[in-house]
């Protein structure tokens, strides 16, 4: 388990115990985090699992591939430098203490 600090779409804070090896999206969805819709079930095909990765997190979560980049352009909420699709991030110990803010997904 890896602890993730989450600010949900309505601004509330949570600490989510995320199972290693799963996607960050599944962990957030299973924790019932407000704003994670994940319409496509993790296929990088809907952009409704969009999050902002806070602090130094971007160095830890790896790079977005080209399709994710395109999907981020078509996300409902503003794309920022720290935008990622949470279904494309695998939870590992290296993410302990990661801080993420859920975008206004629609």
């Amino acid at each position: 388990m890896t602890r993730i600090h989450v600010t949900d779409a309505s601004g509330a804070s949570h600490v989510v115990e995320a199972p290693n090896g799963e996607s960050l999206m599944s962990a957030l969805l299973n924790a019932g985090i407000d704003g994670i819709l994940a319409d496509c079930g993790g296929g990088c095909a809907c952009a409704t699992c969009h999050c902002y990765i806070e602090g130094d997190g971007m160095d830890r979560v790896g790079e977005a591939n080209s399709l994710e980049n395109l999907m981020l352009d078509s996300a409902a909420a503003e794309r920022r430098d720290n935008s990622r699709l949470s279904c494309q991030i695998d939870v590992t110990e290296a993410l302990e203490g990661l801080k993420v803010t859920v975008a206004e997904n629609a």
Binding site: D39, C40, G41, G42, G43, C44, A45, C46
Partner: peptide, 9 residues
């Protein structure tokens, strides 16, 4: 609309 990578575009 299906799910996964082929989810309806």
């Amino acid at each position: 609309f299906g799910f996964g990578i082929h989810r309806c575009m």
